[in-house]
Computed example of a mutant assay.
Amino acid sequence: MRTLIRYLREHLKADFRVDLYALAALFLAVCISVNYYLDFEDSYIDAYRGDNIRIVFYFLLYAFAYYSGVGLWTRFHGRLDVWHRRDFWIYSLTGLGIYSWYAGYYGFNEWSHVVFNDQIYAFAFYCLRNLQSLMTVILPLMLFYWFVEKEPNGFYGMRPKWKGLQIYFLLLLCMVPLITYASFQPSFLESYPTYRDTNANEFFDVPEWVTALIYELAYGWDFVPTELMFRGFLVIGMARILGRGAVLPMVITYAFIHFGKPPGETISSIFGGYILGVIALQTRSIWGGIIIHLGVAWLMELAAFIQLGL
Rank of each mutant, 00 (worst) to 15 (best):
Y126V: 12
Y126N: 14
T211K: 07
R2S: 11
L228H: 03
G50R: 05
P262E: 10
R79K: 15
L178D: 10
W146A: 14
H11P: 02
I236R: 00
E151I: 11
V235W: 05
I267C: 02
E227L: 04
D51R: 08
Y195D: 12
A14S: 13
L165P: 02
W89G: 09
G232I: 02
L178A: 15
R244G: 15
N117V: 09
Y102L: 01
Y48C: 01
I5T: 06
K13V: 13
A280H: 03
Q166I: 08
V82S: 09
G95I: 02
D19Y: 05
W101R: 00
M175Q: 14
G309Y: 03
R85I: 00
E202A: 11
L172Q: 08
E301Q: 15
L139K: 04
I241S: 00
E227R: 07
Y66Q: 07
T3L: 15
F144A: 04
M175E: 08
L20R: 04
A200C: 11
Y102W: 11
Y99F: 15
D15V: 07
E151M: 04
G97D: 07
C127Y: 01
P262N: 09
Q282V: 09
N109E: 03
Y44S: 13
A255G: 06
L139H: 02
R129H: 13
Y66H: 08
G309K: 08
